[in-house]
């Protein structure tokens, strides 16, 4: 597992996507899966920056990523407000234009694009863990 720390700012999303993209590509994932792994990680990191660190200017995001057999595991750790993705209702994808809500779309995409998405909050350590897993088909 490789780990790297980023300042929790949107300007680092490029590097965050590159980091997981390189590991996924070297691990043998095809272009489509690499794109989707990058998209899911971007959505996860964006949510942390926007929600967990809302109003916080010096937040830190720790990103770990590694391959084991045919599985990629991505772990994002933050020290902000707990933000449980499962508490966010699924977007209504059949709603028409005027009723369509954009909130929750990132989480919806994460769940669709990855095989597993887990969230663990450890208030005693002031840490939140988001783990995402995808297997090669």
């Amino acid at each position: 597992m490789k780990s790297v720390q980023f300042a929790a700012k949107f300007e680092f999303l490029d590097e965050i996507r590159d980091f997981v993209g390189t590991i996924a590509r070297e691990g043998g994932f095809g272009d489509k899966d690499v794109y989707n792994i990058q998209l899911a990680t971007d959505e996860a990191a964006s949510n942390i920056i926007e929600h967990a660190y809302e109003g916080v200017s010096d937040g830190v995001l720790e990103l770990s990523c590694g391959m084991k057999d045919d599985t990629i595991t991505i772990i994002l750790v933050d020290h902000g407000e707990p933000f449980d993705p499962s508490s966010i209702p699924m977007p209504d994808l059949k709603a028409d234009l005027s009723e369509r809500k954009i909130g929750g779309l990132g989480i919806f995409l994460m769940r669709k694009l990855m095989d597993e998405v887990r969230y663990d909050s450890h208030p005693e350590k002031n840490s939140n863990f988001l783990t995402m897993i995808k297997r090669k088909r």
């Binding site: 998209l39 959505e43 964006s46 954009i102 779309l105 995409l109």
Partner: peptide, 8 residues
């Protein structure tokens, strides 16, 4: 590339 921020 476009994330959900672009969709929004």
């Amino acid at each position: 590339y476009m994330s959900s921020a672009g969709f929004r």
